[in-house]
Computed example of a mutant assay.
Amino acid sequence: MREELPGRAALEPGTIEIAFAVFLRLIACLCLVSGVLYWIRLIGYYPGDLYRFDLMPVQWQIAASVLAVLFPFAAAGLWMLASWGPVIWFLCAAGEIAMHAGFPQYFGHRPSVVVTHAVVAAIYCGFRAAMQRRRRAEAVQ
């Protein structure tokens, strides 16, 4: 049985915190897959348009190179539940949203990517708000 220090509550994660950790790890898996797909594009594993670095336009070379490095980095941070993991994911998501919603003439219009990032960001904000509400409720007690 765990002893509690006087004046301190037990630091055990609740249901929200556990669900948040599972959510972050699912997003980490998606980030890893995205990173691998960008690496596949860079090394020219699949034939087709824009599937080889030397044949890509400059804007795709820059974007694919940056995202191929940042997505696996974000995956590592999200999997470890590090505070910098969501920040790196946000940079990747903002980059892809800017690519596909802001500059579709250069990168193509992919609304599924934009909507997916927006939904993930909304769920993340919902989790953070719920955890903050829970902490405030526990502080009042």
Rank of each mutant, 00 (worst) to 15 (best):
P104E: 00
G35P: 02
Y124E: 14
R134W: 07
L42G: 02
E138S: 01
V120G: 12
R133G: 08
I16W: 12
M99Q: 12
P111Y: 06
A137M: 09
V36Y: 09
G108P: 01
Y46P: 05
Y38K: 15
M131Q: 13
H117K: 05
Y124L: 11
E3T: 13
A118F: 11
G85T: 00
E4W: 02
A101N: 04
V66N: 02
V113D: 02
E96I: 12
T116M: 14
R25G: 02
P104H: 03
A82K: 13
S34H: 06
A130K: 04
A64D: 06
A9D: 01
L42I: 15
I27F: 10
P104Q: 01
L24K: 13
A139D: 04
G95N: 09
Y38Q: 15
C92S: 09
Q141E: 12
R133P: 05
D49L: 09
L91K: 03
Y46T: 11
Q59I: 07
V36T: 13
L11G: 13
G95H: 07
L5W: 06
M56R: 01
V58L: 14
R8F: 11
M80E: 12
A130T: 04
G44A: 03
Y46C: 06
L67A: 14
A101I: 02
A94N: 08
R2M: 11
I88S: 07
V66T: 11
A121K: 12
W60I: 00
C31Y: 04
L42T: 07
A118S: 15
A75P: 08
A21F: 11
R110P: 01
L78T: 07
V115Q: 03
P57H: 02
R128N: 01
H100G: 03
V33Y: 13
T15I: 05
A64S: 13
A94R: 10
P86T: 07
R136P: 04
F127T: 08
L81P: 06
E3F: 12
A75Q: 02
L32V: 05
A121H: 06
P86L: 07
R8W: 08
A122H: 09
G35C: 09
V115R: 06
R136M: 07
S83M: 09
Q105S: 12
A64Y: 05
